[in-house]
Design a protein around this nucleic acid. Structure first.
Lengths: 331, 331
DNA sequence: CTGAAAGCGCTTACAG
DNA sequence: CTGAAAGCGCTTACAG
């Protein structure tokens, strides 16, 4: 800036005003200054601005390491969308993988200790204890894709409940009356919430819930286990996620059944497994873009106004109709 | 810092020295200052440091948008590993998705214009024209997972050539003599380089290259097409990537063949398709961690010494042995 | 061992 | 419409 000012025989204050389109500079001079800046290859030093107004213009996105295996990319895609939406606000996204050690030892992330970010989005469930640590961070913060009832931290989650409710309704509209649910209810809150949506649909349609139609899919460590089919099979299965739906299809096909002729199957997530399953799955698409957009909007509001609260926001999913469901003829 | 200094009746210079473990402060005072800092919840302001030494302590990672579809996560995982390695240097990684518009209009990324980063890693092939734009950026830079022979910009790539060479050797050691290659040679440089590794292996073993055993897998837009099998089939296929190997397995199974009894098949990448194929694929694992580590090391060297060059670095892959290859009994 | 002064690049409040 | 002064939080070079 000083160089530009010198070349043009003006002060750096004037250059600053011109480049920021502020009042107090003649249009003529503004244009001259802008041209000179571009000719000289001037690049703005954001650190200087940061120090002035105490804002880093960065948002930290923290993902627990255990969710970032080579075959898990959901959260990375969410992060990507967040990084893209931040552009609209002149912000950047810094990815912060939370290691298991840091999570156990309750260490603050380095982005926080070094004042590198103006807000933090916690993307993916962290331990109860670490939630406390997060609460102690003196910074706008947000839980994304999970929530904690005790922490009064705002959260944004997929509407698991309503999505499962809708897709179960769809099966019922197609004539299914015996419908199973596949998932370990004590594994994660989203599996549980999806189950409850399924359950509500049964209730509303006056269908009895039959415990024998609840199939477990994983043990307490989250490892997939073999399915134990009931003696009397349902005509349709609501799976808690696409990968499990994929596994179920494989298993049933092995046993000589055809999908969807013998059984209708629906999933949740609309991830890569939805299109790898044969036939392709009817499922609920999680709206990653909308989740990212909502999260960015919310954290920005919090930066502008530290008292801003948005509570627990549900982002609706959307049924994607494919070929894994077949109407049942009443008899 | 000033607050800490005031509380302890010392100067902020002394506080700065103590917190940075610099010489010129008595051990006693150092400890007192550190304790006070931690008690007061002092957080270092990295922007102030940045402005002092002209370093942002951020690295930009730029990925062209077209490589970030919902079912493509390879580059996001590479970015994740980069972000993790940067920790060792006290750096952070800022993700920059390069939109098609910016690529066409040859716009500099905002991270560059705003001096947000000390170096840029371009992750994934950009257009020839944009490579020129990258060259004009006055900053350490690095191509990751592609290279350009005309640009004198350093690059780090997977050793496609050697990986394909090794896995073809493996097939030959297993008795195969008629081996096909699956891939469109004019699509990407990695498909081409992998083909050349396959070709070298044939040459070395005195096997004739038979053009009829070259199977096309995609059109000029990169869309997968149906396989056109030759009249006389080979006994094994080297596929340019796991997804295509997956497609090939599906197709051959549909036609009534068994893998690996009728045909041996190998892939490349060791991505999700390698374990979804039935049987699971013998393939080349791309060493994402090593690529990230090398890239981070290299960009850091360039920041320390702007004249540092590392040329074109090849990161070796590794054969992962699974169940898609069967020895052939000579007859 | 300790600290006063200067400066990094910018912006804001104020004076002219 | 234009600019001199002060200040953001830190570090470095120098003086004591």
């Amino acid at each position: 800036m000083k160089d530009i000012a010198n070349k043009l025989g003006v002060s750096s204050v004037t250059v600053s005003k011109a480049l920021n389109d502020k009042e107090g500079v003649s249009d003529n001079l503004k244009i001259k200054i802008k041209k000179m800046a571009s000719d000289m290859g001037y690049r703005f030093n954001s650190a200087a601005k940061s120090i002035k107004d105490g804002l880093s213009y960065n948002i930290g996105v923290m993902i627990p390491h255990r969710f970032t295996g080579i075959n898990e990319s959901f959260y990375l895609h969410v992060y990507q969308e967040i990084a893209m939406y931040l552009e609209h606000y002149g912000y950047f996204g810094i990815l912060n993988i939370l290691s298991s050690e840091d999570e156990e030892q309750l260490n603050f992330p380095r982005v926080y200790n070094e004042n590198k970010v103006d807000g933090i989005i916690i993307l993916g469930q962290v331990s109860k204890k670490y939630i406390k640590t997060v609460q102690n961070m003196d910074l706008p913060k947000l839980f994304l894709d999970f929530y904690d009832e005790h922490a009064e931290i705002d959260s944004i989650i997929t509407d698991n409940f309503y999505g499962a409710y809708e897709i179960t309704n769809y099966l019922i509209r197609n004539g299914h009356r015996e419908i199973g649910y596949v998932g370990n209810l004590h594994s994660t809150s989203s599996i549980q919430d999806r189950f409850l949506g399924y359950y509500k649909s049964l209730l509303e349609h006056g269908l009895a819930y039959d415990e024998r139609l609840l199939l477990n899919d994983r043990d307490e460590h989250g490892t997939y286990i073999d399915f134990q089919f009931p003696e009397k099979m349902p005509t349709a299965f609501v799976c808690n996620c696409d990968q499990v739906a994929y596994n179920l299809c494989e298993k049933l096909t092995q046993l000589g059944y055809s999908i969807p002729q013998d059984f209708s199957i629906v999933g949740f997530d609309n991830d890569i497994y939805a299109t790898l399953t044969n036939p392709q799955l009817t499922t609920i698409e999680v709206d990653i873009q909308e989740m990212a957009r909502t999260a960015v909007k919310s954290i920005m509001d919090k930066i502008t106004n530290p008292h801003h609260r948005n509570g627990r926001v549900l982002v609706p999913g959307k049924i994607i109709y494919r070929d894994s469901v077949q109407p049942i003829s009443e008899s």
